[in-house]
């Protein structure tokens, strides 16, 4: 295996604590993400993994801690601002726009890049039409990349689960993000679908240089494709390091397999 090289730290989380009322969901979590790496967050159910992603893209605001993104300490931001900062994500339970076609879903992912105003769009002429065609080209590249040409015009509500996951990945990619947050992209998939999805994740990382933060339960996949892994359990941080380090960490083994009495 060749040595992978990573850039500087683009996302640095320090002492993040998040509570809902008396429920402490995240407790003093600190880790960072380097440019170009595949960073996994693992942990048993209810460990706070999804909450962690929600903190990163601004859905939840932690009560304590500091988030440094691209060298700047981030203030409390609104949900819709995350996309502008180059953070895209997919959801654990698919959150596609069910009434729209695959094409429209991915096109919507590019909404921030569309600049023409409502009046041009009303006549669908000039700037607006040119823009639609330009972005369609980009979207077609993504469709080719994810091998979903055949379902381009199918309403996504009619697609099988695995395909919907792929379309959702496409929608996130359409924004050309710097960091891609994937919340269990392989949940509920069979082995072949998992292999496909792993290949896409690796290709995205490799070809576009996108940094990936991944939540996944399949340990085989996580240990195979991640560069570094952080382990959470009941909101606490158990371990952080390369797959080999994490695999041999006693706390992690205890959390997953239980402690002998």
């Amino acid at each position: 295996m060749y040595e992978r090289k990573f850039g500087e730290v683009i996302l640095d989380l320090k002492g993040i604590s998040l509570s809902f009322g008396a429920m402490r969901v995240l407790n003093n979590i600190s880790f960072n993400v380097r440019k170009g790496e595949i960073r996994s967050i693992i942990g048993p159910n209810g460990a706070g993994k999804s909450s962690m992603l929600n903190v990163i893209n601004g859905v939840y605001h932690p009560q304590e801690g500091e988030i440094t993104f691209r060298g700047e300490v981030r203030k409390e931001m609104k949900v819709h601002e995350a996309a502008g900062f180059g953070i895209a994500r997919t959801f654990q339970n698919i959150a596609l726009f069910k009434g729209m076609s695959t094409l429209d879903n991915i096109m919507t992912g590019r909404n921030l890049k569309m600049k023409s105003n409502m009046f041009w769009q009303a006549i669908y002429w000039g700037k607006a039409q040119k823009e639609e065609i330009e972005h369609r080209k980009k979207v077609e590249e993504i469709i080719d990349f994810l091998e979903i040409q055949a379902i381009r015009k199918t309403p996504v509500g009619r697609l099988p689960y695995g395909m919907q996951k792929r379309v959702e990945l496409g929608r996130a990619l359409a924004a050309e993000p710097e960091i891609l947050l994937l919340d269990e992209p392989m949940a509920g998939m069979n082995v072949e679908e998992k292999e496909d999805m792993s290949r896409f994740v690796l290709d995205i990382n490799d070809e576009f240089g996108t940094t990936i933060v991944l939540i996944e339960h399949d340990m085989g996949v996580v240990m195979d494709i991640s560069d570094r892994v952080v382990v959470l359990d009941y909101g606490r941080q158990l371990a952080d390091g390369t797959p080999d380090v994490v695999r041999n960490n006693q706390d992690v083994i205890d959390a997953y397999l239980g402690v002998p009495h």
């Binding site: 893209n57 995350a82 569309m114």
Partner: peptide, 21 residues
């Protein structure tokens, strides 16, 4: 056009719509 897709996105899944900007 884009505005129509934004409308439908808000209709179908407003949280996801907000997260894509």
């Amino acid at each position: 056009s884009n505005i129509g897709r934004e409308w439908m996105a808000v209709r179908d899944m407003d949280i996801a719509a907000e997260i894509i900007g």
